[in-house]
Write a protein that binds this DNA or RNA. Structure first.
Lengths: 206, 206
DNA sequence: TGTACATCAGTGAACGCGCGTTCACTGATGTAC
DNA sequence: TGTACATCAGTGAACGCGCGTTCACTGATGTAC
């Protein structure tokens, strides 16, 4: 039953991907190794051919999910400031809120990451910093430091907004939380209220 | 072995209190009924004399923790605006961050509450709204509605800030996240930067 | 290129363990008279 | 107020179950010659 090297690598990647999805939608502690393997069309016994432990998979799944986020931010950045702000705001929509298996691991597993092992928190920290850098470059501020501080406020704000929009059991309130978050982004980047297209692009000085 | 009515009520209250602490520090899924009962100096068998299920305890523990938060906000409110802002900012300190068994359930169990049962999410939503009301009354805004939207941004921001300050494994970054959050509160309430005591209170125009 | 053999991805049974929940039992409390 | 009995808070063993992890086994792949 041995598989070729490429097949093995592909299987491993698929397990990490499915784990990232399952951990995000059901939580880390509530998701079993067997459940993930079954999602990959495998039995649980083979798990340890690929990973040392569930914790190792958690760490890789978290980093994998964050890499996806970073990639999407970078890709949006390439479209310029306005495109980037739009992308940020697209993370504060009902569609994003309702896609629980996708999106940001920091939102979906936030309170569980607090208690995760060293490797997982390392990956989470790195991902967080990369997202901060991506956001900071588009924020008008006196200094690089100030831009980063503002970026921290933006990202933590988004994390809190999406988390609470999911927690709350009242649809109207949930929508309002998202809207408040979106407006907040607009205000901060100076694209609020939405003026006509082709709006000003300011660049940080210093 | 039967206990008096008052003893029984007191025991129940103690179980809920300890559950609130344990769920916050270790997470909901990762905490067993037996662990909580042991913390209360009891064996797990007696649990079902007080509660129908673990889920019921989760709901009560979450509401209990949020009631505590609401009480502390109200108490701070009685000291006036400046006192209230100070109180909000005290939630964005290393001491608060490091007290994992205390503090806000929305922070400590956020991503798990998303998947909690109806009663728990009901309680979480109510607590969230009460906190919003408390914050909104101190925010200068054109309308009640606008004040509430700003309050939503403030509270979700705080939730994201404390969560990430706990997730991140770099002490410097963690402190910086807290500081950014604190400054953000100051800016929003117009008490930033800290001028000499008796600082200016600005009111939004319009 | 063909052959012989080591490697190892995946299977499925089994490990010890802790989970949420149930239950027969104990004995102090609450209640009816 | 005193007595008889029902109630029920708490105990500790037991329930079925799923967890993370291990292991003997299978058979295709990779490798050495």
């Amino acid at each position: 039953m041995r598989k070729s090297k490429t097949e093995t690598a592909e299987t491993r990647r698929r397990i990490v991907d499915l784990a990232a999805q399952t951990f995000r939608s059901n939580g880390i502690a509530a998701t079993g190794v067997a459940e993930i393997m079954a999602a990959a069309g495998l039995t649980h016994g083979g798990f340890y051919r690929h990973f040392d432990s569930k914790d190792q998979l958690v760490a890789e799944a978290c980093s994998f999910g964050l890499d996806d986020m970073v990639r999407s931010y970078r890709s949006a950045s390439e479209g310029g400031r306005e495109r980037f702000v739009k992308h940020l705001q697209s993370c504060l929509t009902p569609a994003y809120r309702d896609d629980r298996s996708g999106g940001c691991p920091l939102v979906a597993m936030g309170s569980e990451l607090v208690r995760a092992d060293a490797a997982t928190r390392r990956g989470a920290s790195n991902g967080f910093q990369e997202l901060i850098d991506e956001i900071a470059q588009w924020l008008p501020a006196k200094s690089r430091r100030e831009a980063r501080d503002q970026a921290i406020a933006v990202l933590t704000g988004m994390i809190g907004v999406v988390t609470m929009s999911r927690v709350v059991d009242d649809a109207r309130l949930s929508a309002r939380i998202l809207r408040a978050g979106k407006d907040e982004i607009g205000r901060r980047f100076g694209t609020n209220p939405p003026r006509r297209r082709g709006s000003v692009r300011r660049r940080r000085r210093g």
